[in-house]
Design a binder for these strands. Structure first.
Lengths: 153, 153
DNA sequence: TATATTAAAGACAATATACTCTTTTATATC
DNA sequence: GATATAAAAGAGTATATTGTCTTTAATATA
């Protein structure tokens, strides 16, 4: 469904949302820390982070005590925003599940009418899920981010 | 969502369902004809067809007037059956959308509870769609298989 | 039985995705 | 202002997926 890059982007932004939620937390988190904490290849994550920064989702600071941070509050950033920045939203809007170029309501492929319904549901689901609520659930221990244990801070 | 191989498998089996639906049609369809008709790379399709045959979905006949055919009637073969043979059903059953190995109801990832709902819907959708109904719609001109025009026969 | 047709088999090539390494640049902190 | 920290930039490698080519084998048909 999603590329590895996109999956890592979602994980990293959730991690950053957690960081931003911590009282007295540092303003920036080094990419190396995120990669370490989530088990994501460091150099690969850096490129992904760069893309997210270019798309305006993250702020970067290169200096001592630098790193990256969410460009806006976690409750105004949705999982769909992150997906859109990396893999794009076409899969939820126009892309045919059989990858036929002209597929749409006028020229539907054999699966179009079924898929069009699910596609919209998926998009809504990711759009309605913001990084704050997700991060809070992780911090509460209700859900897990990767293989690491997350305890309330 | 699906690999190219899986997409081609779905297209090819729908094409074969159309063939089997035609009165007085030949029992077997050459892979070359399917590849030609649907614009699928011939040699690649042959391997995919082989896999489908190994999984029991298709019958093959190597000889003059040979080719491939559905192993059972089109109305008893679902799109999910085809997907299962190529990409597997894990994506609808156990696979985490963030690809976390241990993700499940006990140890849910941040998206698990949302995704688990959609996953099941998708599986049902593909399971409830059999090749006959799909092929009939294509033959009626209600839907299209690839870029080619399909007229009622 | 000879022949043409077509799938089977397996090596190989191209492309896309995932991942790494090295050098450079910015800047907060001391 | 010197230094250390950390991102930026870009070339390079590894792996998986997709696609091609050639040779072999089966068998229906004539």
């Amino acid at each position: 469904m999603f590329s590895k890059a996109c999956i890592y982007a979602i994980q990293a932004t959730i991690y950053l949302a957690q960081q931003s939620g911590e009282r007295g937390g540092k303003p920036y988190t080094p990419v190396a820390e995120i990669a370490q904490a989530l088990g994501i290849p460091f150099q690969f994550l850096k490129k992904i982070i760069q893309t997210l920064a270019e798309k305006g989702l993250l702020l970067t600071q290169r200096s001592a005590k630098g790193g990256v941070a969410l460009a806006r509050t976690a409750n105004t950033m949705t999982v769909l925003d992150v997906i859109a920045a990396i893999d794009g939203v076409e899969m939820f809007t126009t892309e045919c599940i059989l990858k036929f170029p002209g597929c749409g309501n006028e020229k539907p492929c054999p699966m179009h009418n079924h898929w069009a319904v699910e596609r919209v549901r998926l998009q809504k689901m990711f759009q309605q899920t913001n990084l704050e609520e997700v991060a809070v659930n992780v911090s509460k221990g209700l859900t897990r981010l990767g293989m690491i244990e997350m305890k309330a801070t």
